[in-house]
Amino acid sequence: MSAGVMKDNRSASRLVLENVSHRYGELPVLHNLNLVVNPGELVVLVGPSGCGKTTLLNLLSGHIQPASGTVHREGIIRTVYQHDGLFPWLSVLENISMGLRSVTRKTQRQQEMHELIELIHLEGFEHHYPHELSGGMRQRVELARVLAGDSDILLMDEPFSALDYQTRLRMRHELNRLLVKRPRTVVFVTHDIEEAAQLADRVLVLSNRPATICRELRIHAPRPRDLTDQAVIEAMKAILIELGLQT
C-alpha cells in the first residue's frame, strides 16, 4: 500500500502516560495512571460509564493537559469520534482529503483518495455529503480520513456506539481489515465489552471514578476473531467479572 511505502515510522510512534492524575475542579477523575502504548498495538479501554475514559483520551490527544504527571506523545495523532466528526459542509472526498493535507502533489493526493474510497467500499459516494450517508458509512469515511496520509496513532472515542448492532459488528470487521492494510497504533475507548474482546491486543479495565487501571488483559488470539471464538468469550468473561457484572 502506498501509505505503507510512503511512510513507515510507526515504530517511532509512542504514547506514554506517567503518574497522570486529573481533576475537574474539586472532582478527581483520574488517579495516578500509568500507561505505555506500544507501536502497532491496539489497546482498548473499557470501564463503567462516567469513569473518565473520554478524559483519558483527551489527555492522550493533547486537548487537555493533566493536573499532574506527564504525557509523552510521538507521532501524528488523529481521533475518530462517536459521531458528527465529519465536516458536514465537505463531501466524502473532501473530508478524506483533510487527512492528506501534508501531501502537496496533486496527482499523488488524488491517487491516495481514490485508494481510500476503494478501501472503504464507498465508490460512487465520493461527492455525497455526510448528511446523505448512513451512520455506518459516515464512520467508514471517518476511518478513511484518519488512515489517510501520515497518521501514526489513532484515538477512537466509542466510534461505533451510535450505530445499530449489526452495523457495529460489520464495522469491527471493517476496522480489522483496514488495520491489516494500513497498520496503525490504536487506542480504542468503548463501553462495549464484546467490542473490546473482539478487537483488542490488550484490554485495560478502568475502575470507578477516580479512574485507575484495575486490570490489564492481553488477548493473544490473532485478529480477526469471531464473536464466538473461545478467546473472545474468555476475555469477555474476564472483563465482566472485573467490572462486577458477573461472578
Partner: peptide, 13 residues
C-alpha cells in the same frame, strides 16, 4: 458551532 469541529480542525492542523 459544535466543539467537535474545532477538535477535528486541531487534529488536522
Amino acid at each position: 458551532i459544535p466543539k467537535i469541529y474545532f477538535r477535528v480542525a486541531r487534529d488536522y492542523n
